[in-house]
Write a protein that binds this DNA or RNA. Sequence first.
DNA 1: GGGTTTTGTCACCGGTCGGTGATATACAAT
DNA 2: ATTGTATATCACCGACCGGTGACAAAACCC
Lengths: 203, 203
Amino acid sequence: MHRDSEKTKQKILAGLERLITSKGFTGVGVNAVAREAGVDKVLIYRYFGSMEGLLQAFADNKDFFPRMADVFDGIPEGTPLHEIATRMILEHIRVFQSSPLAQELVCWELTEQNPLTIMFGREMEKHELTALAERGIVLDEDVVTLSVVVLCGLEYLVLRGRNNNPMMKLDYSVPETREKIHKMVSSVMKAFFKSREDEDSTE
Amino acid sequence: MHRDSEKTKQKILAGLERLITSKGFTGVGVNAVAREAGVDKVLIYRYFGSMEGLLQAFADNKDFFPRMADVFDGIPEGTPLHEIATRMILEHIRVFQSSPLAQELVCWELTEQNPLTIMFGREMEKHELTALAERGIVLDEDVVTLSVVVLCGLEYLVLRGRNNNPMMKLDYSVPETREKIHKMVSSVMKAFFKSREDEDSTE
DNA sequence: GGGTTTTGTCACCGGTCGGTGATATACAAT
DNA sequence: ATTGTATATCACCGACCGGTGACAAAACCC
């Protein structure tokens, strides 16, 4: 039984993460976290002050999304804008789908406010399209709006897919459906870009 | 103190609804419902067997969405398809936004399975586009997919708007933003329909 | 070594939860 | 009025919750 406060803090944080991903956010509590971490709950109060403090610490020590900027490096020069946007969306959703933690946090965010969900929300808010702005890529406002709405739609479908709650027969957890949706996204982005250009040229 | 089992059942069901909309689904429990309804909790077990039974009964006695078919009656003959689809989407989302109960149930659906969320999910699943099919209106599969994805995106934005969780600066609870989004939906549907037609004619 | 601080264990508190049995009270049939 | 039944009230159970104080033991400092 070594005594290492730093290690126990990590055990607690790891326990919290396991608990969230396994039982969902509704199961999160001081007792449950302590049990999961194999640690006395009083240590949570000692090291983090409270459950709120623990959530805050968890949010601080974690970056939920990989750097979106890396996506760009895989995109060759001269790729049309609509394809860049499409890839951004699909890449984001791929990451999101492979992260049960992120999915659970979004659900939590929709039902409650706490230090963790607030921080997570901020992270979520900026990551995507700011990366474009950093590269000096300026998109039509409507295009941005569409991208976000589509992105939201896909996230939502991923969340519904977790519990087999298809939306109008559209089940994102089915590979064929997923493929169909991806194709649609690609073509709608293309069509919308084109219609914007046509409009600009006739003004 | 009248003794009217039917009335008590209604009081319990009403209490459940008030509780869901006011405290959210996380606050739902036998004790809380009984307290909210001003009734002893044992009556819940007597009349509904269990919490599950109560949720089932609540789902049975409630239709969450007004008949979507009525939307058609307000649409003149000869309206272009893309505009019909657009109106369907926006009408659905208008209803959804004005129903805190529906919003809370969706959140519940995303986190847990129970008789109520399952029934609600089924209701949600069919209502929208089946109405089109009933009228003999056949839409391109991609168009349906796009409609659903956009619809999902808007629902998601409504949910995020409840707790001020904008998505990439896009806050659906702000009227101007809402207006902007509606315009975008209208024009993207138009553009996508057009691109489908172009594609068909060149095959 | 001794004394202090840090780290961890344990027992306990009041409160709420889901669930149940015993009992009182209103009503309806006779 | 008497009986039986449906309706409602009350008290209670064990389990879990968030939170705290008392205390043991390891580690550190001199």
